[in-house]
């Protein structure tokens, strides 16, 4: 029983990281109809940026994190939107999907050739060691990940639901034309979504890189799992992304421990297939209707 609880806690921590990435997927989709298949690389790039600020510039971790957030907002938020999404989105989703796939490959190769092909160490912001609660032992890293990711998600939800800007962003997500009629600056709201996605990616990088290690291909796994998680939870619901992420993380852990670690990597895909077949809109998603 203790093992089971430990597995659920550590799975939830891993799932929370998937959820941060999956949130990015759903936000971009809702605000601009963008599916970003370079989302995993959006986690990898900040990892290397932080390493640069820490190792080369000699800055402390928190400064490196803040600077990386700024650079990511410019590079992965603003520039990505203006240089790739805006010119392509008017041609439909498919060209953008292909373009982001290309971007994913391009960024990986760029880091591989221009920075390094080898994995780099990345220190955790949480201390080593275990937190003992009776027989239950949970690592500080899992607890810290869970708390930080949880805080980020709660802050985001509060921002979206309790602030004028957040509500305006939701209005844009629900109906762009109506939002425009109501006087909302749609272009700005969409840009905010891209900037938020960039920051979420930096937080995900901060949490996942100590385990994954900084490497040009580290985003492949997390990007794919976040995509599955977003579909599983519901691509048009931010709550769905959270549920999908946590579900994938916990089930992966349980499968690895009670069936075989060899099947662990396939869990997200299996769940994805089941959801696509029986509830294509996702567990918490809403069916989207289209006027013809």
């Amino acid at each position: 029983m203790v093992d089971l609880v430990q597995l659920i806690i550590s799975g939830t921590a891993t799932g929370a990281i998937y959820a941060l990435c999956a949130l990015g997927f759903t936000l971009l989709w809702q605000a601009s109809g963008t599916i970003n298949f370079a989302q995993g690389e959006f986690v990898m790039v900040p990892a290397f940026l932080m390493l640069f600020f820490i190792n080369t510039a000699g800055l402390p971790m928190w400064v490196a994190f803040l600077l990386t957030c700024l650079v990511a907002m410019v590079l992965l938020g603003y520039t990505f939107k203006r240089a790739m999404v805006d010119p392509l989105i008017r041609h439909g989703v498919i060209p953008l999907v292909i373009a982001t796939l290309g971007l994913s490959i391009g960024v990986k190769q760029l880091v591989k050739a221009g920075v390094t092909a080898q994995a780099q160490p990345f220190n955790s912001i949480f201390p080593d060691g275990l937190l003992s609660l009776g027989a239950l032992k949970v690592s500080y890293m899992d607890v810290g990940t869970l708390v930080l990711a949880g805080l980020i998600v709660i802050s985001l939800q509060t921002f979206l639901n309790r602030t004028v800007t957040g509500r305006a962003m939701q209005a844009v997500a629900q109906n762009t034309d109506s939002a425009r009629v109501l006087g909302i600056n749609v272009a700005r709201m969409v840009l905010y979504t891209f900037l938020i996605n960039a920051v979420l990616s930096v937080v995900a990088a901060l949490l996942v890189t100590p385990t994954y290690l900084a490497k040009f291909d580290m985003g492949e796994s997390i990007g794919l799992k976040a995509f599955y998680a977003a579909i599983i939870g519901g691509f048009n619901q931010t709550r769905g992304a959270l549920l999908g992420g946590v579900l994938v993380g916990v089930l992966e852990n349980l499968t690895g421990a009670y069936i075989s670690p060899a099947y662990k990597e396939g869990v997200a895909l299996m769940l994805f297939l089941v959801v696509i077949i029986f509830k294509p809109e996702g567990l918490l998603g809403k069916t989207e209707e289209r006027k013809v």
């Binding site: 550590s10 891993t14 852990n253 690895g256 670690p261 662990k264």
Partner: peptide
């Protein structure tokens, strides 16, 4: 990348 299940 994730060895949690293996270690468990």
């Amino acid at each position: 990348v994730d060895f949690s299940a293996a270690v468990l």
